[in-house]
Design a protein around this nucleic acid. Structure first.
Lengths: 353, 353
DNA sequence: TTGTAGGCGTTATCAC
DNA sequence: GTGATAACGCCTACAA
C-alpha cells in the first residue's frame, strides 16, 4: 500500500492524497472524504522512511544512559518516554555502561540514525575531563543535546538539573543542628552531580565550624546493586575506630546499607544514629524505619526537559540551564528536623496510586 | 554530505562508493582506499533514512513494556537493549501502562514506524481475553512478535519464558515439607505468568493434601511501589484472624512487605515465619535477613530471545516457544530447604561485580 | 572492476 | 482545488 495505490482507488493525484493525510493545503470536502474513505478501507499507513528521507526527521529522540536498570535512571527514562510520546516523539534507548569508549560509540550510532535530538540522562555520561566530554560537544554541533541532572556548557547544549548542592547542604546542616556532631558523607560517584553533593556536605560542615580535616567522607566503589558490600564497607570503617553518629548518603542504596549496618550492631535509629538518603526511590520504603530522603522531583525535571526540547525543536528560545530545588522528605531515620517547605512532595508510595 | 559528494571527491561513481561502504561487490584495493580516505576526511555518514527507504528496514526493534521503571521490567529492557545492540539493532522503547487502549496505540505506532520486529516484555501486555490479545496477533501478521515471559500462540509469534509454574510449585512444596503448614500465596497479577505461579502454588498444596478450600491466597491490587500498603494488606488479613506461618510471594516487593509485616509484630524469621520472593531483584538484599527468592534467569531469557529473533530475521527456523527452569535461591527467610541444583545462580549482589 | 539509471514513498513547488 | 514533477540519498541490477 503506497500513496499511489490510494490515489488510484480514489481517482485523484498523489498530491491530493498527501494533502488530505497531512491536512496541508486546500482540499474540497468531497474529495477529502473520498480519500479518507479509501485510506480507511485499505488500512494505509504512510511510509515513515520515505517521509523521513524527505523531511529529514523521523521524530525520534535518542536517550543515552549508563544503565537503564538503575533505580533512578530507570525512572527518568520512563518519565522521558512518556513525555516525549505525548509530544509525538519516539525514543531510541541506549545503555552505554560506564566506559568512555562505549559512550562515544553509542553517540555516533545515534547521530548516524539521525535522531532529532538526544538526551543524556544522569551526569555519569559527562566526562570528568574536557577530553572525555568532547563527544558531547561534537554531537551538539549536529543536533540539540539535552542533559538531565548533568552540566556542561556550550552551544546547542541544554541542562535541566536539581540543586544537589543545596539539598545536601541543607540535609547536613539540619542533621548537625539536630545534634549529630559526627556526620559521615557516604557516596559512590564523582560525576558532576556527585561533586555537587559532596561540596554541599563540605560547605555545610564548614559553616558549622567543622574543619575540612575533621570532616568524614567515605567513597564506595563497588557495584551499585550490592547492598551487603556497601554495608561491609561501613562496618570496616567502624571497626577501624572511626566514630560517626549520622550518615548523609548520595543515594538511597547507600543509605539503606547504612540502616542495615546500624541495626546489625544494635544502634537505635534515629536516637543514636541518623540516616538521610537521596532520590526518594522505592528503597526508601524498604527499611524499618523508612528513610528520610531527598526528593529531586525527577518527574518535574523530565517534564521541563521535554518542554525545553520542544521549544528548541520549534525554534523558540530556550533556557540553556535550569536548576530546580530539591525537597527533604522526612522519614523515620532522622530526629525531628526543621520545617519542610509547603507543597512538598509525597513519598513515592503515597503518590504512586 | 551525500554519497554524491564522496563520489566526486574520490573521482568514482556513487555505485563504487556504495560498494566500498557496504563491502559488497568487487572493488580494487586502490579505489577502495581512495574512497575510504575521502569518507574519513569528510566525516561522511550514510543517510539511514534513504537506506531504510530502499531496504525497508532501519534495524530497529520495538520494545513494549507496561512500565520500564518496574524493577523486573527495567532489567529485562536493559538486557535486551544490550543484546540487540551487539547484533546491530537499536531499540525503540514504549511504555504503555496497563490500559488496553494505550497498548494498542503504541503497537500501531511501532508498526507505522516500520520496526523490524517487536518484543513484548512481561505478560501484562498479553490480554486476559482473546479480544484483548488480538492486537498482538494482528501485529504478528506484519512483523515477528517476540514475547518475553508471556505466552500467546500463533503464526509469527515467539515466546521465551521461565517455568513459573514449576518454580512456584517447588517453592511451596519445599516450604510445606520444611514444616510450614499454613502457607499463604500473596500475589498481584493475573497475567499469564501470574496465573502460572498461582497454579503452581495450588497444585503443590493439593499434592500435599491441602484441599483447594483450605488453601490461602491473597490478592493485592494497589500500587507496585507502595510497600507499606502491601504490608497493611497482610496486617489486615492477620487481624481478621487468618493464620499463616509462611508466604510465597509473586514478586520480591510483596515478599519484602511480608518480612516487614512479620518483624513489626515480632515474629521470628525463619523459625516462626518463612518468606519466599520472586525475581532475585535488588529488593531481596534490602531486608534482614535477606530474602529467599526465585531467580528466573532473566539475562538468559533475554539472550535466548535475541538469538531467536536474529534467527527469525535471518530466515532460519526458530522455536516458537522456549521454556527455561527457574532456580530457588536460598536466603535467610526460609529454614533449610532441599538441595539446590548445581550451577545455580549467585545472588544479584555477588554476580553484579 | 566500474558506471548508468531506475526505484524506494513522501513532500513540496510549481503550474493550471 | 488539483495535478505533474522534482527533490530526498541510497542500493542494485544491468551494461560496459
Amino acid at each position: 500500500m503506497t500513496i499511489y495505490d490510494i490515489s488510484k482507488k480514489a481517482g485523484v493525484s498523489i498530491a491530493t492524497v498527501s494533502r488530505v493525510i497531512n491536512g496541508s493545503g486546500k482540499v474540497s470536502e468531497k474529495t477529502r472524504k473520498k480519500v479518507l474513505a479509501v485510506v480507511e478501507e485499505s488500512g494505509y499507513t504512510p511510509n515513515l522512511f520515505a517521509r523521513g528521507l524527505g523531511l529529514n526527521t523521523m521524530h525520534i529522540i535518542g536517550i543515552l544512559c549508563v544503565d537503564s536498570s538503575d533505580l533512578f535512571l530507570a525512572k527518568a527514562v520512563y518519565y522521558l518516554e512518556q513525555k516525549l510520546y505525548e509530544n509525538g516523539y519516539g525514543c531510541l534507548l541506549c545503555c552505554t555502561g560506564y566506559q568512555q569508549e562505549n559512550k562515544e560509540k553509542y553517540m555516533k550510532l545515534l547521530l548516524s540514525k539521525r535522531v532529532d535530538a538526544c538526551i543524556l540522562v544522569g551526569s555519569s555520561l559527562v566526562g570528568q575531563t574536557l577530553e572525555d566530554s568532547r563527544y558531547i560537544q561534537d554531537a551538539a554541533k549536529e543536533i540539540p543535546v539535552m542533559l538531565l541532572n548533568a552540566y556542561l556548557n556550550g552551544p546547542n547544549l541544554y541542562c535541566v538539573l536539581a540543586d544537589d548542592y543545596q539539598a545536601t547542604y541543607a540535609a547536613a546542616d539540619q542533621l548537625y543542628r539536630a545534634g549529630k556532631r559526627n556526620l559521615l558523607y557516604y557516596y559512590d560517584s564523582n560525576s558532576y552531580s556527585g561533586k555537587e553533593k559532596l561540596r554541599g556536605f563540605q560547605d555545610a560542615m564548614k559553616a558549622n565550624g567543622v574543619d575540612k580535616k575533621e570532616q568524614k567522607t567515605l567513597y564506595y566503589s563497588g557495584s551499585r546493586e550490592d547492598i551487603p558490600s556497601m554495608k561491609a564497607k561501613l562496618a570496616g570503617l567502624h571497626q577501624s575506630g572511626v566514630a560517626f553518629d549520622g550518615i548523609i548518603a548520595s543515594d538511597d542504596n547507600l543509605a539503606l546499607s547504612a540502616v542495615k549496618f546500624a541495626q546489625s550492631i544494635g544502634w537505635k535509629i534515629p536516637e543514636e544514629f541518623a540516616v538521610i538518603g537521596y532520590n526518594n526511590s522505592l528503597l526508601a520504603q524498604c527499611c524499618e524505619p523508612e528513610l528520610t530522603t531527598i526528593d529531586n522531583h525527577l518527574e518535574t525535571l523530565c517534564s521541563q526537559l521535554t518542554a525545553t526540547l520542544m521549544d528548541v525543536q520549534g525554534g523558540k528560545p530556550a533556557a540553556s540551564r535550569m536548576v530546580f530545588p530539591c525537597t527533604l522528605l522526612p522519614g523515620g531515620t532522622t530526629p525531628a528536623l526543621e520545617r519542610i517547605p509547603e507543597h512538598s512532595p509525597k513519598r513515592k508510595a503515597a503518590s504512586a496510586g
